[in-house]
Design a protein around this nucleic acid. Structure first.
Lengths: 171, 171
DNA sequence: ATAAACTTGACTTAGTTAGTCGGGTATCGC
DNA sequence: GCGATACCCGACTAACTAAGTCAAGTTTAT
């Protein structure tokens, strides 16, 4: 039940482009510096983003990436689905059986939940565009959640639960 | 962005107990048979469930497990959080830096999203109790989503994307 | 031409997940 | 009591996935 680091990094990278491209292409090297993401890793992330029509690449000297569409037309959901392992699905029968073989009622009952959960998640992420994030960045309100900046940063509630990941955690 | 098999199996197992215990304890062996889950695996799943006060164990001959509370007081969210790796958190600064070092605005901006997503997911899963699932099992409506049973089973949309997992997929 | 910058695909490493094994301990029914 | 039933617990392993690296390109502006 985690969004992968790849997904988080990708969203950050796209925001970075939106913030720093003034019509001119933004080279990965500069994103790498600002965001503290390895250049080689970024290159890997940008292939799906390019194919998914989130960004356009401009090759050659003074090249880089620009957004392929208006920030208001790029949703977080799109980005995450391009980068992440397939958004979760669930079926309640094994692949060797036909639909009619499904006789485990508890399986079917709970199966509906996972499907609905996936829909919820997708709807939520699809409701947020890059433009939303850019606009809401300066005012202290992001998406209906009032944040006193500090509050969200040191998360007084979850201190103990921080899992040690290989490198620093991504936001 | 997946609910683990462990989480799905656990929910199924708890439903199974609710459906088959008539006051009497339900042995894991019978859950194992009905649900097609390895006995050894079930044992592993039930330790956290017991410690989390979802089920109570009754040892000895004719023992087994019963629900520790009324089905209407057990939510899916509780079960999943007990079984799954820590529900996801995100911070926007690395652990070696203090809060004030956070200067990567795109990181903070997007970080708020993951936090909100986690809240959404938890709220959704916490809004569904075992009792809900039991009650809605027979009528064709589960949780506001009208399902024509067949429709949800063969998922006409996602056919290609089915990932081959080691064993059969869990619902 | 040359350097900046993207492109591609294979590779490595570490961690997680799913599932197993083996040897316990408690309790019931006879 | 004693044996069968069934939970208890911690270590183990195999497979997979995620994160990140590397090397050898190709494209294009100047």
């Amino acid at each position: 039940m985690q969004v992968s680091s790849k997904g988080k990094y990708s969203v950050r990278a796209v925001i970075d482009i939106a913030q720093h491209s003034e019509g001119a292409p933004v080279p990965l090297a500069s994103i790498s510096q600002r965001e503290g993401i390895s250049l080689l890793f970024l290159e890997q992330l940008f292939q799906p983003l390019r194919k998914g029509n989130i960004v356009k690449s401009i090759r050659g000297s003074h090249g880089g990436y620009v957004l392929a569409r208006d920030p208001s037309e790029i949703t977080i959901g799109e980005i995450v689905r391009l980068i992440e392992s397939p958004i979760y699905t669930s079926s309640c029968f094994s692949k060797n059986e036909s639909v009619d073989d499904c006789r485990i009622s508890s399986s079917c009952i709970s199966g509906a939940i996972w499907k609905q959960l996936a829909e919820h998640v997708n709807n939520f992420l699809d409701s947020i565009t890059i433009a939303d994030l850019l606009n809401k960045a300066k005012p202290e309100v992001v998406y209906g959640l009032r944040l006193k900046s500090k509050k969200i940063l040191d998360r007084p509630d979850k201190g103990e639960d921080l899992v040690e990941t290989t490198t620093a955690e991504v936001a």
